[in-house]
Simulated assay, not measured.
Amino acid sequence: MTTASGRAVLKDALGPLKDRERTAERLLESSARHSFDPDRELDWDAPPVDGKYFWPPELVSLYGTPLWRTMGEEQRIDLSRHEAASLGSLGIWFEIILMQLLVRHIYDKPVTDSHVRYALTEIADECRHSMMFARMIRKGGTPAYPVSRRNHHLARVLKTVSTTPGSFACTLLGEEILDWMQRLTFPDERVQPLVRGVTRIHVIEEARHVRYAREELRRQMATAPRWERELTRISCGEAARVFSVAFVNPHVYENIGLDPREAVAQVRASGHRREVMQTGARRLTDFLDDIGVLRGAGRKLWQSSGLLP
């Protein structure tokens, strides 16, 4: 039985939290106004523009390294083309995971709730995003870049054992760092128009997904039992470690004529790259710290990932 003092503590914890249904209703209204069909919105038939990058050069993994300084402009652009495909492949992998986590989240909830309706709307968004990324990869003329077999199977375990707050923490991990990069990409005139169009659509629609996940994670961390909060901290930290490794695919370097071992070593030693990743994660890590996710062993895992100083 919940004591009077326990109810008071719970009420205090829930005080600043937004009502779940009202939040979902606002997100549904936004979805009705600002959703896109990439097949119609983007000019898929236009050829790539000569001399333009496929990803902002400062966000390319080797930028500023000794190896980067030896590369000609054509090879740098080619690296950006393959890295855009690698990040698109990473995005598809992550969105497939996210869709499964969302379906699990709503499985036992009333099907007429706005919260459930919005989750289904987000799943539809993620389906379009995955198809959009796949089409962008094909249009760029590169192979797809799946994550390593080990990380593929680690994600399978994560999907099975993840707590509800852990699912939303991992959702934000996958969304917010890529979102930060894409916000720099879509206004950048050095970048191919098609890539800018893809990232613009993704940024606009992902803003709703981030808000949904943040509100639910804040609610879950305020109300979940202690064991669930502790497990969430560990699983989120491990997900951060896996995700940071998956951001660099060694096959990218091999496919443009570089030694993949040397390239990966230079990326890991790059102060610029470390700053890019930590800056991209900062808004998320500040939020996770504020709601109590970055504590204990979980915080150490985040630090070992390189995403948290």
Rank of each mutant, 00 (worst) to 15 (best):
L194C: 06
V195P: 01
V198S: 08
V198Y: 05
V198L: 11
V198N: 07
V198Q: 08
T199S: 02
H202R: 01
I204R: 14
I204F: 09
I204G: 00
E206W: 11
E206T: 12
E206R: 02
V210L: 09
Y212N: 03
A213E: 07
A213C: 10
E215C: 01
R218K: 11
R218S: 15
A222F: 05
A222E: 07
A222N: 05
T223R: 09
P225V: 11
R226T: 14
E228Q: 13
E228Y: 06
R229P: 02
R229M: 02
E230C: 08
E230Q: 13
E230F: 12
T232Q: 06
C236D: 05
A240Q: 04
F243R: 00
F243N: 00
F243V: 01
S244F: 00
V245G: 03
V245I: 15
F247T: 14
F247E: 07
F247W: 10
F247V: 08
V248C: 07
N249Q: 11
P250Q: 04
P250K: 05
H251P: 03
H251A: 14
Y253V: 08
Y253Q: 04
I256V: 15
L258H: 07
P260C: 13
R261F: 12
E262G: 10
E262A: 13
A265M: 07
A265H: 09
Q266H: 03
Q266V: 00
Q266Y: 02
V267Q: 04
S270T: 09
G271Y: 08
V276C: 07
V276G: 07
V276W: 04
M277W: 13
R282C: 07
R282F: 10
L284D: 01
T285I: 13
T285S: 07
D286N: 14
D286S: 15
F287D: 07
F287M: 13
D289H: 15
D289P: 04
I291M: 03
G292L: 02
V293F: 01
L294F: 10
R295Q: 15
K300D: 14
L301C: 05
L301P: 00
W302Y: 12
Q303G: 05
